[in-house]
């Protein structure tokens, strides 16, 4: 009983982790499967053929590349706009500032089905062709909200005296932005951009409404699910997961090393 009390937090943590990672583990395991029928649901026979021939099924890699392309383009454009909007909202008083603050939240709060269908209606009305640009524009719209919110928080949390100190030390407004404000806000912008990219990459609903005949990765998987998902998709998904994992580990490692070096430096003085 006492043992349980002492270890309860650890036990719950392990259970939660298992809950979170079992689905991913299933995908990873099944990516090494040689399925018996067309449904890849029970493990039949170990095989690396999907990994060796990852683009072997027509359309998989094309849709994957397309999603990355849309994700990058939408994120870059949304980050630029979002950052500028955030600066305007925090730094300037202008008419319509409060309503802008509110409107920025709307895309995050509106159900995707509503957004997707109303965008579709809009594009059809103005006879804007569905497909790559329509989807990119739609993604920019909802990513912008996330960027604005993140950068705004970062800017509001910044000590205004830092910029004053910069001005006091002969930095023109432009130099102050370049050497003080921007570097301090950058981590916030990057974090928001990463989130924006992830949202765009796996967006299905809004994309589906506005893609026309174009097939992004989520749309491809959705289509494939009807007929039996090729093992290559499992392999790609696993690949994406491990790439992100490596990225996270590298960032953590760099931080930990920097911290250790800092501590060593502090201790030695």
């Amino acid at each position: 009983m006492r043992w349980l009390r002492r270890n309860i937090i650890g036990i719950i943590a392990v259970l939660v982790l298992v809950y979170l990672f079992v689905p991913i583990a299933v995908v990873a395991v099944l990516s090494f499967n040689q399925p018996e029928g067309k449904y890849n649901v029970t493990f039949n026979e170990f095989s690396v053929s999907a990994w060796q021939n990852i683009c072997g099924v027509p359309g998989v890699c094309e849709s994957f590349a397309l999603s990355i392309q849309i994700g990058l383009l939408a994120t870059v454009i949304a980050t630029i706009f979002g950052t500028m909007i955030a600066f305007a909202l925090v730094r300037y008083r202008f008419r319509g500032r409060d309503s802008t603050n509110l409107l920025i939240f709307l895309p995050m709060a509106t159900p995707e089905v509503v957004l997707g269908s109303s965008l579709l209606a809009l594009f059809l009305n103005i006879t804007f062709p569905l497909g790559f640009w329509a989807v990119t524009i739609a993604h920019i719209m909802f990513i912008v909200s996330f960027i604005v919110v993140a950068v705004k928080a970062r800017l509001q949390g910044m000590d205004p005296r830092l910029e004053e100190a910069s001005r006091d030390l002969y930095a023109s407004p432009r130099a102050t932005f370049r050497y003080v404000t921007f570097p301090l806000v950058l981590p916030g912008i990057l974090g928001a951009a990463l989130l924006g990219f992830a949202l765009s990459f796996d967006d299905f609903i809004i994309t589906f409404f506005n893609a026309g005949t174009m097939v992004t990765f989520p749309v491809y998987i959705w289509g494939a699910a009807q007929r039996g998902i090729p093992v290559q998709v499992y392999a790609l998904a696993t690949l994406v997961f491990f790439l992100s994992l490596v990225l996270v580990l590298v960032v953590q490692g760099v931080n930990a090393r920097r911290r250790r070096r800092l501590e060593a430096a502090v201790a030695s003085s």
């Binding site: 005296r161 830092l162 100190a165 910069s166 003080v180 301090l184």
Partner: peptide, 12 residues
């Protein structure tokens, strides 16, 4: 030039 109350050193 100014020495600010909370120093306002550039953290980055």
């Amino acid at each position: 030039n100014t020495v600010f109350q909370s120093y306002a050193l550039f953290p980055h």
